[in-house]
Every structure is written in C-alpha cells, then in structure tokens.
Design a protein around this nucleic acid. Structure first.
Lengths: 227, 227
DNA sequence: AAAAAAGTATGATTTATATCAGGTTTTGAG
DNA sequence: CTCAAAACCTGATATAAATCATACTTTTTT
C-alpha cells in the first residue's frame, strides 16, 4: 500500500461547512492511501479506527444476508466519506466497503475525529448534515432500484446512475466497469438475465457492448425506459 | 383534533440520553394530539414547524415517484420521532407521513428543538444517534423487503415485521390492520397476488383470515419461509 | 505462447408474477 | 336497518423472469 500526505481539503465534500482551521488540523493528522480494485476496505461488524474519504475512484457498500446473498446498498465516489456511523457509535461497521476501481482514500484517525466532534460544534453540525444526506441517499436508491418496476427499468436506472455518478469517456464508455456478476445483486436478478437484457438494449440502439465494456449510445432512450 | 398535555417523557425513545431537565423543558412546550386513521400528517416537500413523537399508534413514511407509484419506506410505532430531517435542515419534508391507525402524537415546536440543539450538546448527540439509527433501519428494511427474493418470502417478512413491531392480540390477530392495497406497495406487487398468496399461506396453516383480518397461526412457519 | 481461470454469452425450459374481468363480502353513512 | 361504496376475493390467461446446460471470449498465470 502506497501512502503519502493528502494535498488539499477539497475532497471533504461531506464536510463542507468545516472551518478552514479545523480542516487543516484534521488533514495534518491524515494520510492518503491507494488501494487496488476489489480490495475489501472494511467488513460488516469490523470495528473501525479510521474514517475514509474518497479522493479518487469508486467503492460500494454491501451487506450479506443470512442466506449468503449479497445486497449492494449504494455506490460511493469522490468526496464521499465512509465509516461515519462506526466512528460515531464506536461499534462495528454496519456494512462492508469494497473498492470497485483503484481508489485513493484520505484516512482520518477515529480519535482525532471524535475529539473534533466534541469540541467543535460546527464539525458536529457537518456530521449531522452528512448523516441526513445518507438517509436521503438511501431513500433515493430505494426509489430508483425499486421493487415495483421490472428489471429492464432497473437496468436502465443503473446505467444512468453509473453514467451520472462516475461518468463516461468521449466514446460513451462507462468509467466504472461492473462485472455482470456485480450488476446482478444491485438489480436483484441473475447474471444471465442481465446479459440478455443488455443484448436487447443493444438491439434497440440504447447501448453498445464491446469486449464486455458498456458504451452509452442513447441517454435519452434510457431515460425513456425509466418512465 | 382533540389536544391535551403530554403526560410523561418516556415516549422519547429516540432521544434516550436526553437529560431529565431538558426533557421536562421540551415537554412543557409540547402538546399532544390524536389524529384518526388515514390522516396525512405531512406531505413530501411540505415545510414542517413541528417534530412529532408517536405516543400510541402506527404511521408510515412514503414517497410517490414520477409515475405516481407509492413507495412505502418504513412503518413507525410508539417512541419513534418524525420530522427530524426537516427540522434540522429547515427544508421541506423528504417523505409523506400517514397514520395507519388512530395515532396519538406529541408535537414539539421546531424552534424550541433548534434552540435546544444549539445550546445542548447532549441533545445534539441524541439527535445524531437517532439519525444513525434511521440509516440502520433503512438498510434493515431494504434487506427484509429485498428485491432478491420472491414475493412469498417478502410477504412472510412483512407479516413477521408487523407482528414484531405492533404485536397481536391473544388470538394472534395483528394489531395493525393494513389494507391489501397498502400491503402491495410494500412488497412491490399487486393486491390480487397478495390475496392469492395469503390464501396459500392460509392453506399451509401459517395464518388465518377472518373478515379480512389476519391471524398469525404459526410464527415458526413464517420464519421458515424467510430462509 | 499455451493453459487455466474467470468472465461473458445463448437460448430453451420452467416457474413466478402480473393482469384482467369478473364476483363476493364488509363497512359505513343515512 | 338498508343500501351503496369500498374493500376483498377468485381463477384463468399472459408475461416476465429464473434457471439450466452449454459454449464462447477474454484475462491471467505459468
């Protein structure tokens, strides 16, 4: 694991209102690391000693149910902070966090964060704001990957969500590449069915699939599918 | 709307760590109301001037998507507080709240709450705790009403959830009665299919249905269905 | 460069769920 | 108590999605 000092405070999107002084102080005690694609950053029930802010890359939050099925709860990108609940409650993490791509993280020491929370009401306010936002995001995700609509609809939502959140290159190729196996549990279906649907999306000219990379051809068409 | 003074501080389950003094002070400025079954307490985007704690009864949080479909996000019972986010952010509510049964609420003035949050770090801590819990609950609900398993499984989960959360009388009759029309959007299916499944549950001896009221006959059997 | 492994693709079959067009029971207002 | 409205139920048919067996492609390892 390569480590080096974080360079700026811009990454703390989740803590926007934090005073400059506090930001500098927190960052002074932080370190930046790069983890490769697929790394399990922390696991459900694991006690955390760090709070992680994503500087570059993409991660997912997931849980495994009693029957071993993986539930993907949300995706996270630059500026989003992982580990807030575990740091606040000092209990084990409630979710597992995994890197979807090579990811650069800024790591803050739990105790430094807790100290700041105690003596800095402004920081505490930011923390509350971030948690409110987490509730909002959870609800939003539930709406777009909802159980009311068919899987075609949810797949269109997923593609639009990935495009919006992580972007695409000039040819429309999604920046975050998910294995079909990783897309399936987001939508609550099987690999095979997703592949069948991707093919039909391709036939309709909505996307293109080249070497299993997905290229968005018609954002408008995908949006149309979500109505 | 009948109104009278709230009698005790026990109902503030969401704010357990609140000091006795603070509790008394808050309660002094509160009023208790009773709203009939079906009342829309507040609606998505509506600015709130109150924070509501459920003293008795049951409510639901829901959202309506662009196609008019209702998404039920969670159910709430005694001790749970509604309106936290709207009070904190001073923005419109993100969800609609509706009474499922006749419900007794303790209403706190938004400004009194905000004042307390500012000058009382302990209360602020409770508020944060309650929001952390909201994130946990959202995740839990997503797991049990998940898109991975069939509707039989989700219906069993719903019945167990209602039994656990709101209880049943000595004959096993669920205390909270949901219309089939209200159960459908929780599970992401149609009334008719729910009715068909309830019938098959009845045939298996898991439940009984008398005058459309549901009686839990075999909790163990229902649990078995969720595996 | 070849072999192995991991990931992707196909399409037929089976099962779960949605939908529809009715009919029956329950509830609540007058 | 009566009647209309609302809620509930039925079962057949149509559709969506799961599953399975198999084969191909790409990536990784040696």
């Amino acid at each position: 694991m390569e480590t080096y000092k974080a360079l700026n405070a811009e990454q703390l999107k989740d803590f926007e209102a934090l005073s400059e002084v506090a930001k500098k102080e927190l960052l002074a005690s932080s370190e930046s690391i790069i983890i490769p694609k697929g790394t399990l950053l922390f696991e459900e029930n694991e006690p955390l000693t760090k709070l992680y802010s994503i500087e570059k890359g993409a991660c997912k939050f997931s849980k495994v149910d009693s029957s071993g099925q993986e539930h993907i709860l949300r995706f996270l990108g630059a500026g989003e902070v992982m580990g807030k609940r575990a740091v606040w409650t000092q209990e084990g993490a409630k979710v597992s966090a995994t890197a979807l791509t090579e990811t650069q993280l800024c790591c803050f020491d739990k105790d430094a964060i807790l100290k700041h929370l105690e003596k800095n009401p402004k920081f505490c306010r930011d923390f509350l704001d971030a948690l409110v936002e987490d509730v909002n995001i959870n609800e939003h995700i539930r709406m777009i990957f909802c159980i009311h609509k068919g899987i075609k609809y949810r797949l269109a939502q997923l593609l639009l969500y990935l495009l919006d959140k992580f972007g695409a290159d000039e040819k429309g190729k999604l920046r975050v590449r998910l294995k079909r196996e990783d897309m399936a549990p987001v939508l609550g279906t099987s690999q095979e069915y997703i592949i069948n649907l991707l093919k039909s999306f391709k036939n309709f000219g909505l996307i293109d699939v080249i070497k299993s990379e997905i290229y968005i051809q018609s954002q408008a068409g995908l949006i149309e599918m979500t109505r």
